[in-house]
Design a protein around this nucleic acid. Structure first.
Lengths: 342, 342
DNA sequence: CTGAAAGCGCTAACAC
DNA sequence: GTGTTAGCGCTTTCAG
């Protein structure tokens, strides 16, 4: 591991018979007053020595690190998840175009106890932060309410808190699913929702309730928490149909639960969609690939991730003060919904 | 977005009537010669002002950034993948314990064309790099062969190149799968492999061939490329059974292809495992959740990721010169294998 | 057109 | 015990 002594701007200056200033000016295209000859010499030296400016030194000088953090909640294995993965991928792509790098932070208990989410700003490790998978219980988000740090929630929001947010319209998502099922003739439907502490869970339910032709909220015994997981979705589905054998359709708050629900229903001898229909939400890659292919509400996660990153940088560079964006959703029809059995 | 002027070590020095040195010494626990009274004053000032040392400035001084990169290949949406996700999660967890942060880099064409994979070192953005999902065609890896930069391949290796590597034993993985199927009585088996340019693909095949009781390599028409995807696995499975209706079992090089294969087989009216058995490789989370639950070779991905990160830091801190580690695998038996039909 | 010098925030020899 | 000072590598006034 031979320590390669890195070449600095000084070396370039010496080699090109120019001063530090001159080299810096040339490199930063502020060279409109530098003579072509000098510029050539500098550029040649840069080339020859393989000089690359240190980003740490530049950062120190500019008081900008060039990093953005993605904060994800503690999950079994946080990044092994298609939903988060797609967001992360999108954010990365967008950040790169802006010359920014992405760092990953997991907001687990010890992390928050040590106030790492704030320290990462104060220590100038990052210029901005995107928070994914937040819930109403994430008290640490209050630390960002003053708006003195560029922070933005991705695809969620917290009713009480004034936090920047870019998200999909989950009321409309629920409405689309409910409307589609009603049109197909379903009158007895159940809902497998995600965590109650996630605001979009409530939005989704409200939209759904309105669209299936209910004037009142869905009865509590037509709701089950599917924990956002396949396992949870499977168990929730089984509990629902055991309790209400006349159910003809289920709507799940995300595709993972929907896919789990299908597996669960099959495991107790029900056919999808012949005996019971299932609608998901997200339109993840795997939604097209389960059996039967899933009819689901498409929330444009990738596009949303890019947009969130774009807006965060607006915050970082003071091109925006505060952000609230709600993006439209649509319905992807596949094979998991049929008319109710006679 | 009020620009919060961050408090520096100077402010602390002034407030605590001490010098920069003293403050620095106290903060870095080199304070064995500082008087308790002074230390108290300093600590109090630090507390009161909410001082946090700038990591950029520290990095500049120490010539260490405190960042590690994870380099992943270009994928449709790179991070939306359970295999990579689990590795990333593991690496993150390990890095955190060492006070390191993880940055994500995607090795797409434009990235490599610009030699970003090298520049990120030269610009002191990172102290080390972990490469995931590499193939024999990744020519850029040669740039790391000299060993002057701390780089380590995760769960793969390249036969021709002298690169650090921490990986699972894929020869043994193939052997375990083959042996299990043979024990169950299978004599006509097919293999759905991953990309030929991935070295472990060959290891897996060699191990498999040996164990199913072949003296020669598997006939070419018993092999299909499943592209590491569900779709690819499905198509490969269908092609194999169409071509050889007497096949009683399939081995897939990863769980995604195995799950796809099961879906594909079902779609043409075959039952798993009654008509045909399927074995996967990885033991991902979803392997327990398909229908039927997948019998698969467990490659301890999470543990491997942590270990890879640990060893990379050994490289970074010159505690190791070069690294080659091969980790054991095991078999997880579920429901996707039965004895061949009579 | 070009260069000297200050300063970003921190650490560590080397005084005193 | 504590402070002075010289960098780490870069950008940017401000003078020539």
């Amino acid at each position: 591991m031979a320590k390669r002594k890195s070449v600095s701007i000084k070396d370039v200056a010496r080699e090109s018979q120019a001063s530090l200033t001159t080299v810096s000016l040339v490199l930063n295209k502020r060279d409109w007053r530098i003579s072509p000859a000098t510029r050539e010499r500098v550029l040649e030296a840069v080339q020859r020595l393989g000089y690359r400016p240190s980003r740490m030194a530049q950062g120190l000088q500019a008081q900008r690190s060039g990093f953005l953090a993605i904060l994800v909640p503690q999950l079994r294995h946080a990044f092994a998840d298609a939903y988060f993965g797609e967001l992360i991928s999108a954010i990365h792509d967008q950040a790169r175009e802006a010359g920014y790098k992405i760092i990953l932070e997991v907001a687990d208990e010890s992390y928050l106890a040590a106030s790492q989410h704030v320290e990462i700003f104060d220590r100038h490790v990052i210029d901005g932060m995107l928070c994914m998978g937040v819930t109403n219980r994430d008290a640490y988000l209050r630390d960002f309410e003053k708006g003195d740090r560029p922070v933005l929630l991705v695809n969620n929001y917290l009713p009480g808190l004034a936090l920047n947010s870019v998200r999909c319209d989950y009321i409309e998502a629920g409405r689309l699913a409910g409307h589609f099922l009603r049109e197909k003739g379903h009158r007895h439907v159940g809902l497998i929702h995600g965590a109650q502490e996630v605001q979009t869970t409530h939005d989704l339910r409200r939209g759904f309730e309105g669209a299936i032709g209910l004037n009142a909220p869905l009865a509590a015994d037509l709701l089950e928490d599917g924990l956002y997981t396949e396992e949870g979705g499977a168990e929730a589905a089984i509990r629902l149909v055991r309790r209400h054998p006349n159910l003809t359709a289920l709507f799940a708050g995300n595709d993972k639960m929907a896919i789990g629900a299908i597996a669960g229903l099959k495991s107790i001898g029900l056919r999808v969609p012949e005996d019971i229909s299932v609608v998901g939400c997200d339109d993840m890659h795997s939604a097209a690939f389960c059996d039967p292919p899933l009819t689901t509400v498409r929330t444009p996660i990738y596009e949303l991730g890019r947009r969130a990153c774009e807006r965060l940088l607006d915050l970082v560079f003071n091109r925006a003060e505060s952000i609230q964006e709600i993006h439209p959703v649509s319905l992807t029809v596949r094979k998991s919904v049929a008319a109710p059995r006679a």
